[in-house]
Design a protein around this nucleic acid. Sequence first.
RNA 1: GCGAGAGUGGCGGAAUUGGCAGACGCGCCGGACUUAGGAUCCGGUGUCUUCGGACGUGCGGGUUCAAGCCCCGCCUCUCGCACCA
Length: 882
Amino acid sequence: MDRYDPSVIEPKWQAYWDERKTFKTPETPRSEKKAYILDMFPYPSGSGLHVGHPEGYTATDIVARYKRARGYDVLHPMGWDAFGLPAEQHAIQTGTHPRVTTQENIATFKRQLKMLGFSYDWDREIDTTDPAYVRWTQWIFLELFERGLAYQSEVPVNWCPALGTVLANEEIINGLSERGGHPVVRIPIRQWMLRITEYADKLLEGLDLTEWPSSTRTMQIEWIGRSEGAQVRFETVDGGDSVEVYTTRPDTLLGCTFVVLAPEHPLVEKLTSEAKRAEVEAYVAAAKAKSERDRQASKEKTGVFTGGYVVNPVNGEKIPVYIADYVLAGYGTGAIMAVPAHDQRDFEFAKAHGLPIREVVSKDGNPSREPLEEAMIEEGIAVNSGPYNGLKTAEFKAKIIEDLQTSGKGERRVETKLRDWVFSRQRYWGEPIPIYFPVETEGDPRKGDPYTIDYSKPMPVPREELPLELPELDDFRPGEDPEGVLARAVEWRFFERDGKFYARETNTMPQWAGSCWYYLRFIDPHNDKEPFSQEAAKRWLPVDLYVGGAEHAVLHLLYARFWHKVLYDAGIVPVPEPFQKLVHQGMILGEIEYTAFRRPSGELVSAREVKSTADGEIHEPSGAPVTREKVDSARAKKDERGEWVLASDPSIALEARAHKMSKSRGNVVNPDEIVREFGADAMRVYEMFMGPLEATKPWNTASIGGVRRFLDRAYQIAKKSDASAEASPELLQLLHQTIRKVTDDIEALHFNTAISALMVLSNELNRLNAVPKEAVSIFARLLHPFAPHLGEEIWAMLGHGESVQFADWPEYDASLAERSEVEIPVQILGKVRGRITIAKDADQEQALARAKELPQILSQLEGKTIRKVIYVPGRILNLIVG
RNA sequence: GCGAGAGUGGCGGAAUUGGCAGACGCGCCGGACUUAGGAUCCGGUGUCUUCGGACGUGCGGGUUCAAGCCCCGCCUCUCGCACCA
């Protein structure tokens, strides 16, 4: 072959790898060193791979190939997170079974991944919808159930009867479903819950054991939202009931001037006086009608007085009770003690409703002279607090909790924002929850006879009966029954045993379930005795490198850690944390776009004058709406202020930015087309060359040409390989510097600079008419993790019979990589005036002597004296003159 | 509003962490080879310049012999959170 032709060599090597099983995970340990390198497995959507997928996959593939070359036992698997709504929606619309759609989509994804030459061990492929996998997902659910971590609860959900489904808050607009505009009601539905809150502390502490991005750690910490405080009882004035409040500032108890209940609080009705009843009921009804979102949208402190009073447990003071929707029913106890002097929200409410503000903490221990203008939320020293005066906040907290506990009026309490996990879906395409219930019936419920299911007695499906498979259905539409789609499969749902009828759970698991433990199945994917063996777990866990999108920073990563910790406590996994090092690849945006704005009158307006409002974008001075218009980059230029403007009319500023890829914007890049035009290696190298892995970066198809030219050159270099040619000292040095740079950069996941080092080397090698074979050999081995097909091809051209994957990673010789002589700049007063070439470890005198040989330095020194010499060997010589 | 990250040529980005700003690539300009070029190869390319040099890493200050990097104060963008008591 004369020219580099990826369309020929890429399929050739892919077939070679497949046949030889080049990337098969070693069954028995061959090495002391192991590396479990994992991608977040994809949901195989109908639209196939987009260019964002291969970014992370290429990064892990480079590391996997590099680690194998370094003698590690590498586990690098891939699979499919294949349950999920889109396939079910498709089934509802077309009648095609979700399994069929899913299998087709998987085939497409797999073809595309193979096309890119990733070194997965395909023998370990996982499909979460495979009954052999579902079996163990259900098995783990039973593990949770038996540990009391899975329970049923009536949870208020957004139920849309017309769609027959539960909607997320985001899917509701003004009380109507986003799709279709159907009414949505909040009704309690029986749901399976997982007690993740019980693991809140362990989930927090475990973060310290991992090497994760600090942003992700912070997000998890905030999501869990742990706070320490006290639960305090305020008895009603008649003593019949008490309002429990949660506070993180029990030290401000004496500054409490009112108590506020959430509108949904169970005591609202009891506390409301007759005189206030109508007003309160109206407020409660209005609050209920608003969606969660709308309620949180307004920060205005609305609320009404109930007419009821409670008693301050410390000083016996009578305190009015309000209801307000700034108090959330779902957090703490759904009731607060309001301390307007030291809580901004309470302060605003007090101001709005004319309630007293009593200062009980101050910076210096003296009450303020002026009324507070805003809440003083910081800690300080107690004032106006009787016997507690003078205590520092922390001391006060400890003391008062002790006192409350003694008097039986309160106790210490830890609260989290994290809620228990609603684990059931009223859907078809998910894992059936392996639980059944007793049924009361006179006849046979399968024949339509009346029945009652006793949901209070859940029973686990025996493990030997797993997997509990989904029934075959023709109609996947959600029905009116909130028990879910499966409730219609009566033959599946009901069964008779020992003369009694039982009903299976008809809820299915959420999509998260399969992804909660897939990394555990990969270590032993064909085991039919247990989810995975203990030996495999000891050998491979934890995952050493986990790469995936930041959109999973909280939910997937928190849920998977939760399951992992349960299994750890059960003694089933040997390490406390599943993912040792985590990296999020950045998003790849579409190509940069220049946009002009046009008024309806036809004239263009400057982007500076365009503001986006709720009703769209408008031209601010005139208030007229504007439309966007794409401008070719050739018609745009940058003006003196550094602003992008229309070349033909610089008064018209343009918007210049890259947008997220989306179908509607029409800027989606298809990997198939890129591979067809430039080759898989070029696509891989380009994606790694774009910039740092973690950065968000715009796509630019033109730039792939540069990468392709680099690969072309690499091929030409290989053709010039000459066993009799010898490397010059300069080349030898460059070779060893490149080995060092590429090795260090791969370890640090700095692929963009590793590639640039390879380009520098290739530029040098390409200058030669005969390239020393040893240089080509090193080059091929350094290149192959990035461009594996070409790496193999060049390796074969050098006469090797085995895959380059089995070749040793080149080692660099530090003494060869270092220069003995370096060129350093000579500065006068911090400005570069010349350069000298000098021994790396030359002393100051030598350096100064050499500098004085330079005419441009001498002329600068004329008539001046050197006051100070700063010399950093190998770096700089700076002369301070005066 | 709060939190995190970022801002460097026309563009993507480098810069051993305080030591030559702009590696590498795209684009652009010029040249070679060509019937041809959206192919290939070679050279140039931060801005201004009186060709000595001056200026230059979002803006304004500061520390230092020396600042893209450290400190103080702002601006802009991206992401996350958003009444959590």
